[in-house]
Amino acid sequence: MRVADLTDSRAATDALLGHLRQGRWSPRAVARFLWLAGDRSVRQAARRPQALVQITAAHGLLAGLARNKRPGPGWVAASWALSVLHLGLLEERDHLSAADALTLVRGNLPATALGSTRWAGVAAIALDVADGRLARHQHTVTPFGDYADTFADAAFWIWLTLCHEPNRLVRAAAITAWALPVVTVTAIGIRRGTMPERPRPTLLRPAAAMQGIVALRHLLRK
């Protein structure tokens, strides 16, 4: 079966990474990997027109709320592209859940006016708690929502830290807490040729603690 036809997102990812590893990460292997990944992404999006419309509509609304200054509309456009290219992670579902929508809003806070206020960190934490509880209550947890949650956290908190945190030690700790797990999991997957398990929640507590620290410092900063 072709990679594009695999319905299980993990099996498809493993197959793609396997092609990359077999090609010894050569330029030709990387090009083939990107081609196959893009082909699958387009096919999976086409199979889920409802989700595609939902993502486009949601990002259209977010673009309307985006500030004219950076990161603004460019951030929203990047979020839309990444969301569309990963619709295969919805697996058997053909639409977004309410929890998914809240996750997308959280990931796009930097582009909105709220992102420029001292309440941005508090709002991100509130949205994070809300989408997690909603997904569990409605039984709508999917790989799409799981990974969207991880990348929304990394994108928002790294942005907030780099743009608004003056303390170098806090910046270094925050970037390490959010970027290191993403980089590590990606590197392991490419090296092994299979997608590794994500770090367990207990291993992500430093990132949760950093959220509180960064959000509180940002809220109290004059």
Rank of each mutant, 00 (worst) to 15 (best):
residue 82 L to E: 13
residue 98 A to G: 04
residue 147 Y to V: 07
residue 94 D to N: 11
residue 111 A to Y: 07
residue 103 T to V: 14
residue 55 I to C: 06
residue 126 A to S: 13
residue 68 N to A: 15
residue 138 Q to R: 15
residue 164 H to I: 01
residue 129 V to I: 11
residue 75 W to D: 09
residue 56 T to I: 06
residue 114 L to G: 00
residue 118 R to A: 12
residue 145 G to V: 02
residue 95 H to G: 00
residue 90 L to V: 00
residue 152 A to S: 13
residue 113 A to E: 13
residue 122 V to P: 04
residue 64 G to I: 09
residue 162 L to W: 14
residue 68 N to T: 15
residue 127 L to W: 08
residue 120 A to Q: 02
residue 57 A to D: 11
residue 102 L to S: 01
residue 142 T to G: 11
residue 104 L to N: 05
residue 110 P to V: 12
residue 151 F to D: 02
residue 58 A to L: 11
residue 130 A to T: 09
residue 149 D to F: 07
residue 161 T to L: 02
residue 101 A to S: 06
residue 73 P to S: 08
residue 51 A to H: 00
residue 91 E to P: 01
residue 60 G to D: 09
residue 79 S to E: 07
residue 57 A to M: 06
residue 93 R to F: 04
residue 75 W to M: 10
residue 54 Q to P: 03
residue 158 I to K: 09
residue 68 N to M: 11
residue 45 A to R: 14
residue 57 A to K: 03
residue 137 H to T: 12
residue 135 A to T: 08
residue 85 L to G: 05
residue 137 H to L: 15
residue 119 W to Y: 10
residue 123 A to K: 07
residue 84 V to H: 10
residue 104 L to I: 08
residue 42 V to D: 04
residue 135 A to G: 02
residue 77 A to M: 08
residue 82 L to T: 08
residue 156 F to D: 15
residue 70 R to A: 14
residue 125 I to E: 13
residue 44 Q to P: 04
residue 107 G to W: 11
residue 111 A to R: 03
residue 164 H to R: 15
residue 149 D to Y: 07
residue 93 R to I: 04
residue 128 D to A: 14
residue 66 A to Q: 09
residue 144 F to T: 00
residue 57 A to H: 08
residue 152 A to M: 06
residue 107 G to R: 04
residue 81 A to Y: 07
residue 50 Q to T: 08
residue 153 D to I: 07
residue 86 H to I: 01
residue 77 A to I: 11
residue 58 A to V: 00
residue 89 L to E: 14
residue 78 A to R: 12
residue 68 N to W: 09
residue 78 A to Q: 14
residue 53 V to L: 07
residue 152 A to V: 00
residue 43 R to H: 11
residue 152 A to P: 01
residue 142 T to D: 15
residue 67 R to F: 11
residue 123 A to P: 06
residue 121 G to S: 05
residue 142 T to M: 12
residue 102 L to E: 00
residue 146 D to I: 06
residue 87 L to S: 02
residue 80 W to R: 10
residue 129 V to P: 05
residue 61 L to H: 01
residue 45 A to S: 09
residue 74 G to V: 07
residue 42 V to S: 05
residue 99 A to K: 10
residue 158 I to E: 13
residue 154 A to C: 12
residue 74 G to F: 01
residue 124 A to P: 03
residue 53 V to W: 09
